[in-house]
Simulated assay, not measured.
Amino acid sequence: MKKIFLTILAFSSFTLFSQKKYIESMSFEQSQDISFFINVKNNTKLGEYITASGNSVKLGDTLIIGNPTSSYATSNTYGGGNKITFGRTKTRFSKEFEFIKLGRPAGIGAAMSGADTPMAGINLSKEVVLVKEMKTYHKGSKKKPLNVQIILGEINGRAFGINKYLSVMNTELAIESREIFLKNRKITREEAIVKLKEAKELLDLEMMSQEEYDAIKKELSPIIMNKK
């Protein structure tokens, strides 16, 4: 009898979690762990996301939009007329973001009809934005890992042109490609090494005191030694 009760309790807990539409905090590791993501439905809201590099993104956080990582070309030919003659072709290259879209993510119906929103353009570089909403989606079926999407709002509540919001379609790739920057992100080991080398050069040039160098070394050493 006790065994049956425990089985029912475990099943009830599993069902409750499966139907949960809000996760207070989720890490990148959890998003890739099948024992975790198998129980998470698409469109589940997040309160906090811990990235692969250990940085935290929370609702209300301030982010900075970086630079676009993709581009496209449009060409027009002038002076050809209706005859078979040589005209002048003018090609224009435009940059756009690969992971940031204008507006909210398109719903299933809109995506199937092809009525998708365009990607954000270079004019939005350096914009300071707020994290308004975070959601998780499976990268395909329920047995595939989770992807985190972020809805961004203008810091003063205004719109980005005709769009009230921007959508980061893949948070990890957007951060990795530097299309978005976290204002309070942790420095990486590689960045710490570069910073320490620069400090050593300044010390050798007598443009930095030994005390200043020692303070920087003390701060960066745990990161370089992978102890932080």
Rank of each mutant, 00 (worst) to 15 (best):
L146N: 07
I100C: 04
N226C: 06
S125L: 08
T69N: 13
I150C: 10
A106Q: 09
L203K: 13
T188Q: 02
T117G: 04
L16Q: 11
V57T: 10
F28Y: 15
K83L: 13
F86A: 12
K197E: 12
I84P: 09
T171A: 06
S221R: 08
S75V: 01
E198H: 03
S94W: 11
K41F: 00
F160T: 02
I8W: 08
S177N: 07
I38C: 01
K218G: 09
A73N: 14
M208V: 01
N123P: 00
Y72Q: 05
A199L: 06
I155C: 02
I50K: 14
E172R: 08
A120Q: 04
N55H: 02
M169Y: 01
A73T: 15
K197V: 02
L146C: 06
I122Q: 13
K3G: 08
S12T: 12
F99V: 07
L146W: 09
T51Y: 05
F14A: 13
K144L: 02
L173R: 11
N156G: 01
E201R: 12
S53M: 11
D204E: 12
N82V: 13
N42G: 15
D214I: 10
S177G: 01
R104Y: 10
N226V: 09
V148A: 09
N42H: 13
K101F: 13
G161N: 05
S35Q: 06
D204T: 05
E176F: 15
E212L: 04
V40G: 01
R178V: 05
G140N: 03
Q30L: 11
A174P: 10
I23M: 05
N39S: 12
N43P: 08
Q30T: 08
K228W: 05
K20E: 11
A215S: 14
A10S: 07
V131W: 06
A52L: 11
I162E: 14
L203F: 15
T74N: 15
K21D: 15
E127D: 03
N39K: 08
M119Q: 12
L146I: 02
Q30N: 12
K197G: 05
F28W: 15
A110P: 02
Y165D: 07
F97Q: 11
G114C: 01
M112I: 11
K58N: 08
K135L: 04
G107V: 00
Y137A: 01
K227G: 09
S27F: 03
Y22V: 07
L202D: 06
N55W: 04
M225I: 04
S18H: 11
A174Q: 13
F160D: 04
N147A: 04
G121R: 13
Q149D: 00
I4H: 11
T15K: 14
I180K: 12
V194E: 12
K45A: 13
S12R: 03
K95L: 14
P145K: 07
G153A: 01
R178H: 02
F5N: 13
G103Y: 03
I151L: 15
K83C: 15
S35C: 01
E191Q: 14
T136F: 05
I8S: 10
K186H: 14
I108R: 09
A110E: 14
L9Y: 09
T44I: 05
M169T: 07
A159C: 09
Y78P: 06
S12I: 11
D116C: 11
L63Y: 06
V131S: 10
S125T: 03
